[in-house]
Write a protein that binds this DNA or RNA. Structure first.
Lengths: 210, 210
DNA sequence: TTTTTTATCCATGAAAACCGGTAGATGAAA
DNA sequence: TTTCATCTACCGGTTTTCATGGATAAAAAA
């Protein structure tokens, strides 16, 4: 089926990883490593003279980022497949990369087998990414991303609980009954789906409420 | 000066990086790569039969962490030099690694030249780390917030408390008495200068321990 | 104008956390 | 060897939290 070797280009500024990729790709049948660049600019220049089949692209690069480069390449060389190869696990980064036209998203903990397999898969017009990334992308963490709507009073109480205040201390400070404070705290815990204050504070902190 | 080649061992679970290191080290004069392992346990087993001069050690590893491994190795093979090779830039991690006896701390963006140079430097009993890390380490600790030194056990309990586990649940999980868990928690609260778990979790989170 | 949400309050009892000590066993360090 | 740190465990007692299961009034939304 394969008429000639797939040409591959790597853009990666960490030399240890660049070396690793280089070594893996060179040792793989059916792949031909055309170059390893440490900046997007240099790689683009190269592509101008010699397009490739697959581009392995880091995101954190000096100057022009991998995301920008991805957009540029996809505009100019529609046939070139792009696989993002990075450590970013933030949903926003992944999304941006995919919206920029990337054909795959791999983390740097990918095994050499998976890496090589991924390259042939994207050449078959498949879209590839690890299951971790898929999960991240398609499940807003069922009870996670949707941060509960808190009332003004609840936010106040949450703050004070986080400062280590006891129920009665909070009551005194807000001039309300301790029972009321209890009720609010209970509702908070319910909304956050936890069963004690420690976990409540942790979740609230994670969501940036504290 | 050098009588024979320096023997080097790599412990790294990301295969791309492992490959990169392997390739770099094999291509370096005066160095002999004795092995690349993806777990601390496997590497320790190997060291038992064959000590080496220098150990390149990742920190995030499955099961036993690089920090623990560092301690173990330094205890058993005092002459082996250890260079941490990781992406962790948290001050606490760096400190812990150095306290565990590491002779150097490099980030994974190190160039191959620097890496090879680092190896010969530690063999000359020099201590090596990037200037970024030095800055991080000697930076004035924002607002005098020296984070308390926690014991291994305390860290474990802190994690679990943050997950909302009760004293008895923690006790069951760690196979120790609930009273012991209470004691640890009490000590944690003392160290963080708070008087309940909610505030404990908040402070710990602020300091990046959770 | 109903209905819902929000904030307020209450009681009771069980479970957990918190406090202030004490103390044995290790293992490492001085 | 003695000291120090750490982990372990216990006692007795107080305080706080958590779970149930209510209720009322005002404000906002429908």
């Amino acid at each position: 089926m394969i008429t000639h070797k797939l040409s591959v280009l790597v853009v990666e500024d960490h030399s240890i990883i660049a070396e690793g990729l280089s070594s893996i790709l060179q040792g793989s049948e059916g792949l031909e490593l055309r170059g390893v660049f440490s900046t997007a600019e240099a790689a683009l220049l190269f592509l101008g003279s010699q397009p490739v089949d697959v581009l392995l692209l880091d995101i954190s690069l000096p100057e022009m980022s991998g995301i920008e480069m991805c957009r540029t390449v996809k505009k100019q060389y529609k046939k070139t497949k792009i696989i993002a190869l990075t450590n970013h696990t933030e949903k926003s980064v992944v999304q941006e990369m995919l919206e920029s036209g990337a054909d795959g998203y791999l983390l740097k903990n990918t095994s050499r087998q998976d890496l090589v397999a991924a390259i042939s898969q994207v050449m078959n017009n498949q879209f590839i990414m690890q299951s971790e990334i898929q999960k991240l992308l398609f499940s807003p963490t069922p009870a996670g991303k949707a941060l509960p709507r808190l009332t003004t009073r609840e936010k106040e109480i949450l703050q004070l609980v986080g400062q280590g205040a006891t129920t009665s201390a909070i009551a005194r400070q807000l001039f309300i009954s301790p029972q009321t404070v209890e009720t609010h705290r209970r509702n908070l815990m319910q909304k956050f789906e936890v069963n004690n204050s420690a976990a409540l504070i942790k979740k609230a902190t994670e969501k940036g409420l504290l």
